[in-house]
Computed example of a mutant assay.
Amino acid sequence: MTQTKTPYHHGDLKAAIIKAASEMLDTQGIEALSLRKIAENVGVSRTAAYHHFKDKNELLSAIASQGFIKWQKEIGLIFNNKRISQSQQLSQFCHAYIQFAISNPNIYDLMFGRTLWKNNVSSEELKSVAYPSFDYQVTMTKFWQAQGLLPQSENALRLAQVLWGTLHGISKLVLDGVYTDNSNIIEMCDCAIAMFVGSKR
């Protein structure tokens, strides 16, 4: 008797495609990604893949969205940890940001790089998770200001943007191979934290 492959449910196939695409992105880079190849890896027709993603950019946006969801969970664990001080929260957040970039280089580049944002090809799904993720950082910045940890005289949005820009800059230096010594990376992150905290008055 011939065995037939169990068909994917509607939601299962979309998740399977994103998972396969994320793995291919991680091992082969963005240039290797195509809906045709991914459909073959998943074991479905290209038409089935296009039913969920109209083009490569929409698929890349979905991968980036999953990255933001993963990152949001990580920082949520830090911000909601009542057993550590506010200064430890800030420190852990900064170190976690850079570690996330190092651990997920290709997805990180999608989340914050020019591929999706430069030419405004990011999907509404991506925007719906990316913008709230930064809003959460702004909220935490206001909290740290209220606690006297960060300078209260600065606009919270601008301060959050500058902190983010600092961490992003360090992350890119690491991902681009400019810095490879882990001790240097840790010290740079600690220096950035000290500068922000030290300028609170």
Rank of each mutant, 00 (worst) to 15 (best):
V197E: 09
P105E: 01
M1C: 13
A64T: 02
L159W: 10
N41W: 02
Q161T: 10
N119K: 15
A64Y: 11
L163W: 00
L25H: 05
A32D: 15
A160L: 15
L13T: 06
C189E: 11
E74R: 14
I75F: 06
K54D: 00
T47P: 00
F93E: 02
V178I: 15
L149E: 14
L175M: 08
L77M: 12
S199N: 12
S91G: 00
K37R: 12
N81W: 10
L13Y: 05
K56I: 07
K14M: 03
Q72Y: 08
P7A: 12
L110Q: 04
F196A: 00
A146M: 08
L149F: 02
S128A: 15
A156C: 14
N104M: 03
F79M: 14
Q161I: 11
F143H: 13
L77K: 15
E125Y: 02
A130D: 03
E58P: 04
F112V: 04
S61Q: 10
T141Q: 09
K37E: 10
Q147L: 04
K5N: 08
I78W: 00
G148K: 06
Q3A: 12
S87W: 00
R114Q: 12
I17H: 06
L167G: 01
V178K: 09
A20D: 00
Y8V: 04
L159E: 07
V42R: 00
A48H: 06
V121C: 06
Q92M: 05
R36I: 04
S22P: 02
K19E: 07
K54L: 02
I38M: 11
C189R: 09
A160K: 10
N81F: 04
G43H: 10
A130E: 04
D135Y: 14
K5W: 06
D109S: 14
N184M: 08
Q28E: 15
P105L: 11
Q28M: 11
D55Y: 05
K142H: 13
N81C: 07
E31M: 09
S65T: 05
K70C: 01
S199M: 12
Y8S: 05
A101S: 12
R114N: 09
D135T: 14
K200M: 01
N182E: 15
N41L: 13
A20S: 10
L150G: 01
W117M: 02
H51A: 10
I185A: 11
F100N: 07
N120D: 13
A20H: 12
A101F: 08
Q152A: 14
G165M: 15
F53T: 10
I193P: 05
P132H: 10
A156G: 03
S128V: 08
S153Y: 11
I17K: 08
V174K: 04
W71T: 03
G198H: 13
I107E: 01
